[in-house]
């Protein structure tokens, strides 16, 4: 279908974008990559009066390595993350996930700010934000605020973002030395949204796990961490029995949906299988034996 009519405003700065959102009193939407918004407009699921195009705001595309984290500008495109040597080196799980985000033509346009703000329950980047304790910086009419990824995703397509706020960048914490990672996804076709995906990191010191993180997507209203499974791994060496227990805890942590692509039971089974593979890979990469 064709989108409904709207007014089009080009913002040339973050301040101008926020001012345009405020002036529209809730009737405006930000247009970033458009790869989620425009399908919704074409389906007429949304009828915003105004689109505020942020693509021409300078300074929102960057990947900056800092001492403890990597800061990424909101307009950075998926394909830039996919091919960045900084990401490949310092956030390898994120780098590996990017090839699974849609298709090249969509990765050429889609942005990290858009993916996080859209909050699709099967998207990869929200899961990675949760895995890597990301912090979002948000420009609001009253100034700037920051929010941790774990408080940002509220429900399916629902995030902690006001109608007059704009995500400007997101910082992902770097991993401690001796940390291995794993990423596993199953989708119906390469590039489709995940039926389930898991990203994990294990920090290994003296043959034992000192920190464990497990994040999942596609299996609940929001991306999730498997807190119980993480806790039972800490202080242990990964052996097959422990892995089986962790897989059980991962399955217990999710409430998947049934849709035409897969049943809830299948998704719950799958997320366990993927967690098992991802944890084994992380253990090996972290130097565990």
């Amino acid at each position: 279908m064709k989108p409904p009519a709207f007014e089009y405003v080009v913002a040339d700065s973050v301040e101008a974008a926020v001012a345009a959102l405020v002036a529209a009193s809730g009737e405006a939407k930000i247009l970033a990559g458009g790869q989620s918004l425009v399908p919704m407009l074409n389906f007429r699921l949304l009828r915003p009066a105004i689109l505020v195009d942020i693509n021409r705001i300078p300074g929102l595309i960057f990947i900056e390595e800092r001492e403890t984290d990597i800061r990424i500008g909101a307009l950075t495109r998926h394909h830039q993350l996919e091919t960045s040597p900084v990401i490949a080196k310092s956030l390898p799980a994120l780098g590996a996930a990017m090839a699974h985000v849609a298709h090249l033509a969509i990765r050429n346009r889609g942005t990290i700010g858009g993916s996080l703000s859209h909050g699709d329950p099967a998207a990869e980047l929200p899961m990675l934000a949760l895995l890597l304790d990301a912090t979002l910086t948000i420009a609001a009419p009253s100034g700037t605020r920051t929010v941790a990824a774990k408080n940002f995703f509220l429900g399916a397509l629902s995030v902690d973002l006001g109608a007059d706020e704009l995500v400007t960048d997101v910082a992902f914490s770097k991993l401690p030395a001796g940390t291995g990672w794993g990423f596993e996804e199953v989708a119906r076709r390469h590039g489709d949204f995940a039926l389930a995906a898991v990203a994990t990191t294990l920090t290994v010191s003296d043959g034992r796990i000192s920190e464990a993180r497990i994040a999942m997507t596609g299996v609940d209203e929001t991306p999730k961490r498997a807190g119980d499974a993480e806790a039972m791994l800490v202080g242990q060496a990964l052996d097959p029995r422990l892995l089986e227990r962790a897989i059980g805890a991962v399955r217990g942590a999710v409430t998947p949906n049934t849709d035409l692509h897969a049943s809830a039971d299948y998704r719950r089974h799958l997320v366990g299988v993927l967690a098992g593979r991802a944890l084994a890979a992380a253990w090996q990469r972290g130097g565990g034996t």
Partner: peptide
Amino acid sequence: GDSVRACLLFAVQ
């Protein structure tokens, strides 16, 4: 120079 979906972009952009 980059491939894009012409159904997900507006001409005005």
